[in-house]
C-alpha cells in the first residue's frame, strides 16, 4: 500500500500547485477580457480606416499607424542605446573592475533598477529634454530620442544586473584555459566568456527591452505625444506618440463601450501580441538545443 504524505505537506503541495495554475488562469482571463473589449473595434471601424495616419479620436479619426510606428521607433532607439551600454557595463563589472569597485557598482545598479519611472520622467522634462534641444538645436526637446534615452535608462539596470549574473556563472576554468593558450583579456571576454554566458546575456537583453516596450509614464512625459508618422529621416528627433501613452492618457475619460474605447483595447491587443512575440522568440533562442561542439565543451 502506498504511504500517504502527511496532511500539512499535501496542503502545501496543493497550494503551490494552485498558485502555479492561477498564473496561467490570469493570463487567459486577461486575454479573454482584452479580446472581448477590443474585437468589436474591428467591426466598428473598417480596417482601411484603422490603417490611416490620422489619430484624432474625438472626431472619429482612428488611424493607429502613427502610434504603432511611434512605439517601434522609441523602443528601437532605446534598444540601440541600452544593449551595448548594458552588456558593456556588465562585462566591466564582472570581468574588468577590481573587487572593491565591483562591491560598490553592483548594488548601485540594483538601486537604479528600482528607480520609479515617473521620477525619471521628471528628470527627462527638466534636464534631458532642454539639454537635447540646446545641444542638437532642435525645435523642441520633447522627441522620440528623449523617450529612447529614458527608456534606455530604465532598461540598462535590468540588463546589467542579469547579464552580470550570467557572466559570473561562467566557470573560472574557461577563462584560465583561454589565458593559458595566450589569449589576451579582451580576446577571452569576446571569444570565451561572453559566448559561454550567451543565453543569460540574451535573456537580460530581452527582459530589459521588454520592460521598455511596456513603459508608459516616462515616455508619456517626454515624447510630446504628437501622433505623427515617423517616416522622415529626422523622425528620431521629432515628437511621436506611443501606443502605451495613448492608452494611458485616453482610457480615463473615454465612454465605456464606445468605438474609441474598443479601439483603445485593440491597441492593447496589439501590445500584447508584440510582447508575446518577443517572449516566444526569446524562449526559442534560450532553449534551443545546444550544438554538439557546445555540449562537449560544457
Amino acid at each position: 500500500m502506498k504511504e500517504q504524505a502527511p496532511l500539512p505537506e499535501r496542503i502545501i503541495t496543493r497550494g503551490i500547485q494552485a498558485a502555479g495554475y492561477s498564473s496561467i488562469l490570469f493570463v487567459l482571463l486577461i486575454l479573454y477580457f482584452l479580446i472581448s473589449e477590443g474585437a468589436p473595434a474591428v467591426f466598428e471601424v473598417p480596417l482601411k480606416d484603422l490603417l490611416t495616419v490620422r489619430w484624432y479620436p474625438i472626431e472619429a479619426y482612428f488611424g493607429i499607424l502613427p502610434l504603432l510606428l511611434g512605439s517601434l521607433i522609441v523602443t528601437l532607439g532605446a534598444a540601440l542605446i541600452a544593449i551595448p551600454a548594458g552588456v558593456g557595463t556588465a562585462v566591466f563589472i564582472s570581468e574588468v573592475a577590481p573587487g572593491w569597485m565591483k562591491e560598490i557598482l553592483k548594488p548601485l545598479v540594483e538601486v537604479l533598477a528600482g528607480f520609479p519611472s515617473v521620477m525619471l520622467g521628471f528628470l527627462g522634462i527638466l534636464i534631458v529634454s532642454p539639454g537635447l534641444r540646446q545641444a542638437l538645436r532642435l525645435p523642441t526637446g520633447l522627441t522620440a530620442l528623449t523617450g529612447s534615452l529614458l527608456l534606455a535608462g530604465i532598461a540598462i539596470p535590468t540588463i546589467v544586473s542579469i547579464a552580470e549574473d550570467a557572466l559570473n556563472n561562467v566557470p573560472r576554468a574557461y577563462r584560465e584555459a583561454s589565458w593559458a593558450v595566450g589569449a589576451t583579456r579582451w580576446q577571452t571576454i569576446w571569444g570565451v566568456t561572453l559566448p559561454a554566458a550567451r543565453s543569460g546575456v540574451l535573456m537580460a537583453v530581452i527582459l530589459g527591452v521588454g520592460r521598455s516596450i511596456g513603459e508608459t509614464m516616462a515616455v508619456m512625459m517626454v515624447t510630446g505625444n504628437a501622433p505623427v508618422m515617423p517616416l522622415k529621416w529626422n523622425a528620431l528627433f521629432s515628437p511621436i506618440r506611443t501606443m502605451t501613452a495613448t492608452i494611458a492618457s485616453e482610457m480615463g475619460e473615454v465612454a465605456t463601450g464606445s468605438t474609441h474605447y474598443h479601439v483603445l483595447f485593440l491597441i492593447g491587443i496589439i501590445l500584447f501580441l508584440i510582447s508575446l512575440a518577443v517572449n516566444i522568440t526569446a524562449t526559442m533562442i534560450v532553449f534551443r538545443r545546444p550544438k554538439r561542439s557546445e555540449r562537449i565543451l560544457s
Binding site: V53, R54, Y56, E59, P66, I125, L126, S129, P130, R133, P139, T140, G141, L142, M220, M221, G224, N225, A226, P227, V228, S238, P239, R241, A245, S249
Partner: peptide, 26 residues
C-alpha cells in the same frame, strides 16, 4: 478645422508650462 498633426499633446498643465518656460519656439 483640426489641430495640426504635429501638435504636441501634453498630459498635464505642468508639462505645458514647463516646456513654454524653457523653449523660445513654443
Amino acid at each position: 478645422t483640426l489641430f495640426s498633426m504635429d501638435t504636441l499633446l501634453l498630459p498635464s498643465s505642468e508639462g505645458i508650462t514647463a516646456e513654454v518656460k524653457d523653449n523660445p519656439n513654443a
